[in-house]
Design a protein around this nucleic acid. Structure first.
Lengths: 176, 176
DNA sequence: GAAAGATATCTCGTATCCGAGGTATCATGG
DNA sequence: CCATGATACCTCGGATACGAGATATCTTTC
């Protein structure tokens, strides 16, 4: 997931690691900044994999910086991932949100619409959190107030997302 | 996170691994059932740690089952975790939701209220996803429609949760 | 009675990320 | 001129989870 975020940020900007770290922190409201021990080794692996290059810049403010830029393979990797349905079919909402944050880089309304459509299909498939077999669940089906709350929150979230997905799909397909 | 879920399910029920696996899958709407390779080794580690015991039962339906029960340390471990604020101060919503799913086991309205209050404090702290410094963000502050959507969904979710938290806190403190 | 399928558990290699700790550079204040 | 703090990068051990594959039991079906 972090790799997707890094590719997303570096797609149209040249940043050094420390700045990238701040961008990532800002994306999640500085709630849980990623650890140095996560970011820097990943950057090295991504460099070794040919996704990005670095250029050492002598220290202006403090220690020397490693300016990072995506290679063409790096850019291709991002676009491939944005189209990649596997990223969508996961419970982990953070991953879907990370994808959404950079979907603008997919420079084609039809391709963007295809991704949103897959997400919509995923959310509306019957085997979801909101169904008991083929019967829709209600908050009252849960016996304790905390699971009722969980259900209420999840329902509201999904309803909001579905509404947004349908509206956005309408404007995207209108354009093309 | 999975350990919390296992403790939650076994707190008042005796289950075998395969059944536990189905319960966990149902909790997330069968969207992403956990892998055998995740569950069974974890159960072994939890047994080694003295959190649960197993009793071999000759096969009734098919292969022999390992019936699992929490030890008193296992029950204590769940209650400790439910009270543990560290579980709340994480971006990963799944973990908070998992905690919520089993908060009923915390058999004291005041303790339950304390947990919800911490979550409320966490969501309303200014350094969040919804603030740019001390200025509240709006969807219009984002330049592309996808990040607008992300913001819209996140806002609606948080608003729903805050409303529920306040209502539930009111009834919990009313009781005590 | 053989094959197929559901039940039930297990091992092992891999991927992702955290967190504690370390190192080095440069600006600022005393 | 020295301490402190912000900047900037790094290593290493550990935790958590996945996924492919193996194994065994029992029932149902042909």
């Amino acid at each position: 997931m972090l790799e997707l975020v890094i590719l997303g940020f570096l797609y149209d900007e040249r940043l050094h690691g420390y700045d990238l770290r701040k961008r990532i922190a800002a994306l999640t409201g500085h709630v849980r900044p990623i650890a140095d021990g996560t970011l820097y080794p990943l950057l090295k692996r991504m460099e070794a994999a040919g996704l990005l290059t670095r250029e050492l810049q002598p220290g202006q403010v403090a220690a020397p910086r490693h300016m990072l830029s995506l290679t063409s393979e790096g850019k291709k990797a991002l676009l491939d991932r944005l189209r990649e349905p596997d990223e969508l079919f996961i419970t982990d909402e953070n991953r879907w949100f990370a994808l959404l944050a950079f979907l603008r880089h997919l420079d084609d309304p039809a391709a963007q619409a295809a991704v949103l459509q897959r997400r919509l299909d995923f959310l509306t498939q019957p085997a979801s959190f909101f169904w008991d077999g083929d019967r829709p669940l209600r908050a009252a089906d849960f016996d304790d107030p905390f699971r009722q709350g969980l259900f209420t929150i999840a329902t509201a979230t999904t309803r909001t997302e579905l509404k947004w997905l349908r509206e956005t799909l309408a404007t995207l397909t209108q354009v093309s």
